[in-house]
Design a protein around this nucleic acid. Sequence first.
DNA 1: GGGTCATTTCAAGAATTATCGAAACATGGA
DNA 2: TCCATGTTTCGATAATTCTTGAAATGACCC
Lengths: 116, 116
Amino acid sequence: METNHAVDALAALAQETRLTAFRLLVEAGPEGIAAGEIARTLDVPPPNLSFHLSALVHAGLVTSRRDGRQVIYAADFDAMDTLVGFLAQNCCRGEGGCLPSLERTGCAPKARAGKA
Amino acid sequence: METNHAVDALAALAQETRLTAFRLLVEAGPEGIAAGEIARTLDVPPPNLSFHLSALVHAGLVTSRRDGRQVIYAADFDAMDTLVGFLAQNCCRGEGGCLPSLERTGCAPKARAGKA
DNA sequence: GGGTCATTTCAAGAATTATCGAAACATGGA
DNA sequence: TCCATGTTTCGATAATTCTTGAAATGACCC
């Protein structure tokens, strides 16, 4: 991941409405949520939300597809993995155990017996 | 980690000069680097860099201490761990293995035999 | 086609953030 | 004390981003 791309992704999440929307999409899983429902849940005017959602799409963190009249947005989990991976590398340069928080989240790769 | 704090930390890293400076500080380790040296390395005017460094300090990602005439900045690894942990939780809600990239970085907690 | 719902685009203004040069501040040494 | 060095603060400007309401687009149903 290049620095520029990382800056874009970080900037996309560095805004309250967008971060909250993204968390909502992550919770919703691959099925995603319609734009209107996000707007209602977050109590954000639709044009405003549309602006922020397209920022997330532009940053590659979210995908969109049309379903009838609705537009469904969904988190791109691979992109998030890439971003977290980038940050991890910039946090500890590969020294094992430098991200102890990950133990609590359970998000790290499954432990393999004997591997250090 | 509250959403607001996460937004602050993300915003701090969502700028090229700051992200580059932070990577430099991570590479330098706990000993840190003097402000002037960072400015020279990044070829950024000192007042400009000072502005960005204080943004990183304000976000809690970096610490500063004076050493004679110089001010030494150092990455706060705990803060970075907290941020990555926050993102991880917002990425996969605790489902194991949702951040495969971490396997490559080697940053995740050491695997424990038998633990899944 | 006409009507309605869901969403986006547009244009303008407000707010925030970044950059720059000049000046101020702090430290150490002559 | 005076000077030199390293860094920050100040003030102004430039650039970017956010918000808002109005209008446009796209899809469905009659």
